[in-house]
Design a protein around this nucleic acid. Sequence first.
DNA 1: CTGAAAGCGCTTACAG
DNA 2: CTGAAAGCGCTTACAG
Lengths: 365, 365
Amino acid sequence: MATMQDVARRAGVSAKTVSNVLNGYPYIKESTRARVMAAIDELGYQMNISARNLRAGRTGIIALAIPELSLPYFAQLSDAVIEAAATKGWTVVIEPTGGVRERELEVLSGARRHLVDGVIFSPLALGPDDADHLRVDFPLVLLGERIPHGPVDHVTMNNVEASRAATQHLLDLGRRRIAVIGAFPGEQMGTATVRLNGYLAALEAAGIERDDTLITSPGPWWHRTEGAQAMQRLLDADIRFDAVFGFNDTLALGALHVLLWSGRRVPEDVAVVGFDNIEETRFSMPPLTSVEPGRLQIARTAVDLLAERVGGTGPAGQREIYADFTLEVRESTVGRQRSPGGAEAVSPPLEADPTVTPLDAASGR
Amino acid sequence: MATMQDVARRAGVSAKTVSNVLNGYPYIKESTRARVMAAIDELGYQMNISARNLRAGRTGIIALAIPELSLPYFAQLSDAVIEAAATKGWTVVIEPTGGVRERELEVLSGARRHLVDGVIFSPLALGPDDADHLRVDFPLVLLGERIPHGPVDHVTMNNVEASRAATQHLLDLGRRRIAVIGAFPGEQMGTATVRLNGYLAALEAAGIERDDTLITSPGPWWHRTEGAQAMQRLLDADIRFDAVFGFNDTLALGALHVLLWSGRRVPEDVAVVGFDNIEETRFSMPPLTSVEPGRLQIARTAVDLLAERVGGTGPAGQREIYADFTLEVRESTVGRQRSPGGAEAVSPPLEADPTVTPLDAASGR
DNA sequence: CTGAAAGCGCTTACAG
DNA sequence: CTGAAAGCGCTTACAG
């Protein structure tokens, strides 16, 4: 395989000049650049990334450490991060930690430190007591709620406010007994905790007393299974409720499934709200009202902050960025007619998802 | 940062010996190994991957090129590939192509050839005419149906048989007018084509004539949206049918959504079958009968074949491996009672998903 | 605008 | 079992 030297020889220049051309160094005579490019074409030359990395101390790779891709939120977040990273010329390696503490620590201990220019990390097992582990010697951007005021740049959203808004939406519809799927009493700090705080804040503002029989704790994982199980236990215990707030969409969808199975009408008997606004919320039956957490904004911001750290242009202190959320109102709370609160008429979700990449015309499937 | 030389000096050995220790070279005196390990610990030494790659000509990275992570099948496949690759010491970079021809060609033109030891590639835009593009000078394993007999190792499943079995299941239930969601007439070869062939084969064996008004072509993308739109068109056109076969689960789930919306009962009025057995098939209402394509087996086999190619131990010719499929019968076809065909009683999906990674006890959410 | 030399941190032969 | 030398293919100063 051709090397930079081969190209230089063929173009009648030095390797340095080839390097300059390839790296976009501006002060090169046009004729020289043309000769170099021609030589590259003729030899089919491709730069050896490892050599460049060794010498330059950069790899052009960032890691995205998340619990698992099978959780739709993280799959969709990963797509967004990959796309945002590409605009910076970065390749992304995804490191599913399984939410296992040891594997999350490995992300930080930097066994792959030399492989990546930086890391975007969404911890699940690590918590506030682990903030010191975040003092690493490579650029790191933190996502999520587990370590709120760590010593690194942090991108998140205002979960308390968003959760309060979702709960308020149910209250506005006249619901008074709102079951929660997704509390996690063992948690010092995390998504479950802050979303529960938002829920409780909304109740308090409405003068409704907290009822712990309505607050279910399906455990640390938030798949559909756990949502279904938690709902089944509520039904088995004959708890009365007129609404359900799932702390993520998969919990809410699992709960919705069991509700319908048991013969409840949604939203007439029970209104259901989720969180994350994953694609399938538009396709459940009925479509699921959900909090859009600003996933694209989170991905882009995380990549931008990381790029600044890698480039050394970030400020000295850590930054805390909050993405904007919105409540997407769908039929699981307002039914098929116009919402009483004046929301737009809700129609079957037949419009294309604007976030879907268009397929070019020539391709097939 | 400490180098191998620093470690060698501290341990009183040569760099070569440190390298031998780190690479598991067997013939090292135990006392030497211990001294080296101690020096590594004391210095906090971590090998520079780029330097190793440059010298060894390997990177320890493989690429997985897929259309997009937002399609649950590919997210779940990616998780499986990442896990399988880890057992070989490989890191995975995921390259979402968006199904765009140009980006799929980039995967093969090897702009990142030096970055990866090999590539697992699931094309969508490239087709049988592009087989020559697969003649690349790096290890490559192909997935999917788009290029059936290309010049490279290929892992797939028997789509025709699986599709035939799914259709037969509907026929066994007495259904005679089975609508298809997912045909793609413009396609020379691909998933849509082979699954349609299986469907037609089953009809023919049952002596049922093909009815083209039942065969919908939602286009190349197989999201929920397209399934919902195709179903809406069937309903708008007043086509009669008593079953629906979605060529993947998201199409089937989109169609299911519109069916229920329109007031049809599933499966009493219309039975629904999907393909891929993604997690949410167990949580739709009703749960969706689907073909399990052997996703884990596909992931592991692809990684194994690639490892043999990278190691130079594979056979000269290309291999064609078929994963085993099974039909997972759920309520969308047999309802909540025992299936007439003798399948097991179907119950609400409250059992845990066995493919879910356990979270360690100490972690939170 | 371009070149010649040195060196990034490893591993590969080659010796012993 | 271990060592000394060379070199993987680039980029970084340093000159001019």
